[in-house]
Design a protein around this nucleic acid. Structure first.
Length: 485
DNA sequence: TTTTGAGTTGTTCGA
DNA sequence: GTCGAACAACTCAAA
């Protein structure tokens, strides 16, 4: 490959979980350098890199890459797709293109950190410029520290520190132009990666709910800022209300930056943010806190944060686990949640807590089983948030819920889905059931069931456990944990 | 170093 | 029907 003397050497822009042009510091640096920019996305082998993406997120990735490619095309640029070990792929591209620099935005999951460190070292050792930038989080995970210099282990002081540490960096706009190389390296085709499910196409309902890509992400943000945020603090707990931002899957693959979101909520009020804005920002801070945990405890998705739980008497029961996964537990709010997850690759936050509590405390199944299922089925699966929140429900996590806090699926349903609208949407076989029994069909008189056209065990399952019994069993299991010490 | 106050999201029981 | 207390004890963060 020859390059003229006037033409500067190109720079490789390595995209990972930052599939956006907006507020992209690596892209900004590459563009500013004036050198031709070669954008690359590498599909890394499962054993390495950022860890395997779940199947639902692969669906998202497919469309997100297509959107990114379009965005780059508008700048007369391209997106080069390659697969394989990241170091080997980048090495090959350096040779093919004559590039002498690679830039990317940092990731903070352990596997990602390991690969990035390896690559940075390898390249710098042979004189290749290798620079990484911040942008996946509001603040670098080592930045917020307690007075004693240790990482925070409880949320509230973490939040206070975040609030007092000043605004996160102001987002930077996408570049208006990119210098392009004289010739482009070969690229895989997106379809050759087979990221979309085919037989069966379980993602067929995803498009009803989602449009991947950064343009859609910005639109979601604007919609939320203009509307739902007004009632956010209260309404966010009601799964039948369109009260949440729905930004999580966009954040998970970096189609929008947390700084962009944070600052978008700034101009909304006077100097003091409203309760709704604070509440929303606190959710961004939770994402931050989860990464804070993952960063200091890389095994967050496989080991108990608190080793007190290492001897917990989990039960193995494939049949019960399967009932949970398929939304066939006989508890309508649990089943609605699990079916929403399957249908849309997403579940409302309140319901996530309910179904997680049910798996862990009613069924006594290891939280890691639930974590893995969520990781595979959620379009917003995030290595930090998913693991931290499962541990939080289990009680083994940082700042975790006390063991006696066991969600009652009937009461939770009646409190947060009072009309049963959520249940009726996702468990249609119960749609005709009287509201009084919509969250407790197992207590409905025969006549009521009959009128609704339901025969328990036929059209809708009998409950697989009695919550009152299961609750006591969970309390006993926790008590045994203490005695063992 | 010691002390002190506090800690996302609940449920049940008994007055 | 409503309300407050009990449910444990521990760890964390900061003074």
């Amino acid at each position: 490959m020859t390059t003229s003397k006037k033409e500067p050497q190109p720079v490789l822009l390595w995209f990972r979980k930052d599939l956006r042009l907006d507020d992209n510091h690596a892209l900004h640096a590459a563009a500013k350098s004036g050198r031709p920019v070669i954008p690359v996305y590498i599909r890394e082998p499962e054993a390495k890199g950022c860890g395997p993406l779940g199947a639902a997120q692969e669906w998202w990735l497919h469309h997100s890459l297509a959107a990114l490619r379009e965005g780059l095309a508008a700048l007369e640029s391209k997106l080069i797709l390659r697969h394989g070990d990241a170091l080997a792929v980048l090495d090959a591209l350096l040779v093919e293109t004559g590039a002498e620099a690679v830039v990317w935005n940092r990731r903070y999951d352990p596997a990602g950190i390991a690969v990035d460190t390896e690559i940075k070292t390898a390249f710098r050792n042979k004189g290749i410029e290798a620079n990484s930038f911040a942008g996946q989080l509001l603040h670098e995970p080592q930045r917020l520290r307690t007075g004693a210099g240790t990482p925070y282990k409880t949320y509230t002081p973490f939040w206070r520190a975040l609030e007092q540490s000043g605004e996160p960096p102001f987002p930077i706009d996408a570049p208006a132009r990119l210098a392009t190389p004289q010739s482009w390296p070969q690229s895989d085709t997106l379809t050759s990666w087979s990221l979309l499910p085919s037989k069966p196409n379980w993602a067929s309902d995803f498009p009803d709910m989602w449009t991947p890509g950064e343009d859609a992400a910005r639109e979601k943000l604007e919609d939320f800022i203009d509307g739902a945020i007004d009632g956010y603090a209260v309404d966010r707990d009601f799964p039948d209300k369109p009260a949440t931002s729905l930004l999580s899957p966009h954040l998970a693959l970096g189609e929008i930056s947390p700084a962009r979101i944070w600052h978008a909520t700034r101009g909304l009020s006077g100097k003091v943010p409203t309760e709704n804005i604070v509440r929303f920002r606190k959710e961004l801070a939770w994402r931050e806190f989860c990464y804070h945990q993952l960063f200091q405890f890389p095994k967050l998705n496989s080991a108990n944060w608190s080793d007190r739980y290492d001897d917990f008497p989990w039960r193995e029961d494939a049949k019960l686990f399967d009932s949970w996964r398929r939304g066939q537990t006989g508890y309508p709010i649990v089943d609605a949640g699990m079916r929403q997850l399957w249908r849309h690759g997403w579940m409302h936050n309140r319901v996530r807590m309910i179904v997680a509590s049910f798996l862990i405390k009613d069924l006594l199944i290891d939280w890691r089983e639930g974590e893995a299922w969520f990781r595979d089925t959620l379009v917003d699966a995030d290595p930090a948030a998913n693991a931290a929140n499962w541990q939080w429900v289990a009680g083994s996590g940082a700042d975790a819920s006390p063991f006696f806090r066991i969600f009652n699926p009937v009461l939770q349903g009646e409190k947060f889905d009072p009309d049963g609208g959520y249940v009726r949407t996702f468990v249609p076989e119960l749609a005709g059931l009287d509201g009084k029994y919509i969250h407790r069909p197992f207590e409905a008189p025969d006549g009521v069931l009959k009128r609704a056209g339901i025969e328990l065990g036929e059209h809708y399952p009998r409950r697989i456990v009695d919550h009152a019994v299961a609750r006591q069993r969970a309390l006993d299991a926790h008590a045994s944990l203490k005695r063992d010490e």
